[in-house]
Structures are given as C-alpha cells and as structure tokens.
Amino acid sequence: MSQNSDLTLHQQHVHEAHAHVGEHTHRDDVGSKMGMWLFLFTEVLLFGGMFILYASYRFMYSDAFKVAAEHLDTYVGAINTIILLASSCAVVLAIVSLQKKNKRLCLGFLWFTLACGAAFMVNKYFEWGHKIEIGIYPKGPALAEMSEGEVLFFGLYYVMTGLHGLHIIIGMIFIGVIMAMIQKNKITHDNFQKLENSGLYWHLVDVIWIFLFPLFYLIH
C-alpha cells in the first residue's frame, strides 16, 4: 500500500481546485503539525507529572529545598539557558532561510543548533560529574547525610534534568535526520513541515528548561 493513499479526498478536492499548489502537496501539512502538537502535549504532561511532584514536595519541604539548591551553580544553569535559547532561535532561523531557498545557511543554522545541544550536554556532564564526585547522588554518602527534603530535591533534580537531557539527545537525533533530508533535497523550501515539526519539538525542550532553570537553580 502506498503512502499516497493516505491522502483524503477532500484534500484532493482542494488540490485540484488549486492546481498551482502542484504535485508535491500530496500531503497534509496542517494535519502533520496537529499530530506533532498533540505529541507535544503528551510531553508536557509527562513532565507535568513531575512538576506536580516538585510542587508538592517544595510545598512540604520549602526550607530544605532552599538549602539543597545551594549546591547548584546558578552560572552553569544560566549559561545552559542561554545556549538553549540561542539554539531555539537558530532552528527558527533555519526555517526562514529554507523558505528563502538558502539551503546552505539553513544547514549552517542547524549545525549551530546541534553544537548548542552538544554544549548543553557537556555542561550537564560536568555538572552531574561534580555532584557525583562529592557524593551527592542516590544512595551516595553525602546525600545520605542530608535531610529528607534535600534527598527529594536531588531525586527530582536527577530525574527531571536527566529526562530533559534525554530529550535534548532525541531532539539532536531528529535534527540530524532532518539535516540529511535537507541535504538530499527531500525537505525543500515548499515542503518543510518535517523541519518545522522537529523545530517544535526542540522549542518544547527549550520551554521545559525555561521552567526547570528557575525552579532548581534560582531558589534562594
């Protein structure tokens, strides 16, 4: 069964009525975007479950959370925030440049995005590495000394930033695949919904970090 048959007739009608849209519109860009958004909602609620936990435990142990947050480096968090914002901007600029048929610039922006993602992960690696070194990790010696609220803080810290990091990696893989498709002209100036969808995913990961940053690094 060919993928062409996915197309619905009403779209066919639209396409026939607007022949200038051309052959390549055997697809439903809005539908594809809608599907992506619905997927983003599931991601929002996936993290949402953990934000509920965070809110509850912060409510119960607000003082311990403040103490625990002292162990986090605001500068590393802020730098990572800037890195992600820049990468998000680059993705959206990549779409603009593709619309302007500037394939090289588009790929350049996406390379920049990948570099940002990698830089973020490197920062994260050193951040986690340092904590593990001084014994702040689940079942670690330093954590065992701490109060219950602090243990929960770091439990949530590891799970939430860890899952977020995992999403960065997945997003980078998506963007890498998209870049290959742009290179092979499978994604072009008039057929770039896939690029836009992975952009949406990347922005969502950015948005989640926008909340994680103040909630973990900026409690004083």
Binding site: S88, V91, V92, G199, H203, D206, V207, F211, P214
Partner: peptide, 19 residues
C-alpha cells in the same frame, strides 16, 4: 516572580518560535 517570567518567556517561544 520566577514563574511569571518563565511564563512570559514561554509565551514568546510559543507564539513566535513555535508560530
């Protein structure tokens, strides 16, 4: 304050970057 600022940032990202 932190949450309000984060929400404003999210609105910017959603409205412009996410179109």
């Amino acid at each position: 304050v932190a949450l309000v600022i984060a929400t404003i940032k999210t609105c910017l990202v959603a409205n412009y970057f996410m179109h």
